[in-house]
Amino acid sequence: MEINSNLKRVLDSKKFAVTAEIGPPPSVDSKIIKKKANMLKGYIDAFNVTDGQTAVVRMASWATCLIAKEEGLEPIVQMTTRDRNRIALQMDILGIAALGIKNILCLTGDHISFGNHPKAKGVWDIDSIQFIRIVKDMRDNKQFESGDKMDVAPELFIGAAANPFADPFEMRIKRLSKKIKQGVDFIQTQCIFNINKFKEWMEKIRDLGLHEKVKILGGVTPIKSIGAAKYMKNKVPGMDVPDSIIERLSKVPKEKVSEEGIKIAIETIQQLKEIEGVYGTHIMAIEWEEMVPEIVKSAGLYPRP
């Protein structure tokens, strides 16, 4: 199927792709979405919108995507299997595809116990790998999970996440190859602070030839403060923030910490550009979207193709 996705076009042309994340508001404030979208316009190839990240209620990813899309940007809708069963997920896929969204990121989702509705029931009727297969079957075989057929299939470029830093390391490669086998087109990784470990992961991926089967975008998050770095290091499972990063931030005057955080992000992207099999970067500037243009420009990724 011909997929008319800008992200796919950039990745296929072997240009280093740039995506960024927009955090949806915990209200109906569409102005803030438009504002964030306009900050990113021209600097990225596509934007993600998180889907109830950390299990906190915010505007639905698909709705935020459509609002920002009106500003002329290409959305990547994030969908987790935490809150919807296979019926609801497939219904939403039909809806987003009909409304012109071309990219989807299939996720398992953060556990409910981390969020602001800890009494809610987790769904997890399917996992992210099964989800990838379902979207692919819908797209390529015009087939629902039930086996029933549809007339017009959703035109979607299928993405998923990968965490090179969680344990066991070997299992992470296995998970990725499972995702590839089930039909994932692109991968956005967890935030990379430990570039050496990421390089080790990429080496394993190249050894298996997986870098030729999927387009990997390395995740980058600019660190705003030492507190934020320590929080990510100690409180967020699956995050790997080496002590060297915290030391480096501690060495600069307090008012320069965020500037240093941006510098680290830029350097990380520059290193990612040199790694064989890395096709782009995904910038997750959490509640700091205004810094994305500067990062993109300084990393030598502006203008966008």
Binding site: I129, A166, D167, M171, R175, K178, P237
Partner: peptide, 8 residues
């Protein structure tokens, strides 16, 4: 199909 990204 394997662990989520949050294994410690």
């Amino acid at each position: 199909n394997g662990p989520c990204g949050g294994t410690r």
